[in-house]
């Protein structure tokens, strides 16, 4: 079935079966490989994208459920007022180790800051449930604080 999807401000067409997760539609059909595959069962968050601004695990989100919603991926974060601050903080603190989880982490952090501009540690604990297998949590926390203009202890 041909779907018209709003992805990163463009209308893109994807001819896939209705049960195809958005993740595979983005990665394999549309060539948007920023969202990563880590588990396929909504456990790890590597595949996080924004659907109408809400952090969503795209590996379990069927393409047929997207409809007219705006899908935003890591590739568009440079143009996102909060996303670009988050990316800058990530670069400045050199958060990544392998980096594989980080697109998903940045998407989750951006969604958090959009809702809660000055998150507390408890807010971060609650919102940031993505797995980082390399365990860069200390720096993820610090980068979120930095991006939100709060004091950072490294």
């Amino acid at each position: 079935m041909a779907y018209k999807l709003n992805v990163n401000g463009k209308v893109l067409e994807a001819d896939v079966e209705p049960d195809t997760p958005l993740l595979w539609t983005l990665r394999d059909t549309l060539g948007i490989t920023g969202p990563k595959f880590g588990c396929g069962v909504a456990q790890c968050g590597a595949c996080t994208v924004h659907i109408d601004g809400k952090a969503t695990r795209s590996c379990v989100f069927p393409v047929s459920a997207v409809g007219a919603a705006q899908v935003t991926t890591i590739e568009a974060m440079e143009n996102h007022p909060i996303g670009k601050k988050v990316q800058a903080a990530w670069m400045e603190l050199d958060v990544a180790q392998c980096g594989y989880c980080q697109p998903g982490q940045i998407m989750a952090a951006t969604a958090l800051l959009a809702k809660t501009p000055k998150p507390t540690d408890a807010d971060i604990d609650q919102a940031m449930t993505n797995i980082c297998r390399c365990a860069t949590y200390t720096r993820i926390r610090a980068a979120i604080k930095k991006a939100s203009g709060q004091a950072v202890k490294a």
């Binding site: 890591i74 590739e75 974060m77 990316q87 050199d94 990544a96 697109p103």
Partner: peptide, 12 residues
Amino acid sequence: PQYDTKKIVTGA
């Protein structure tokens, strides 16, 4: 910082 840091955070 890691040389690839920009590519990592932009999903390249």
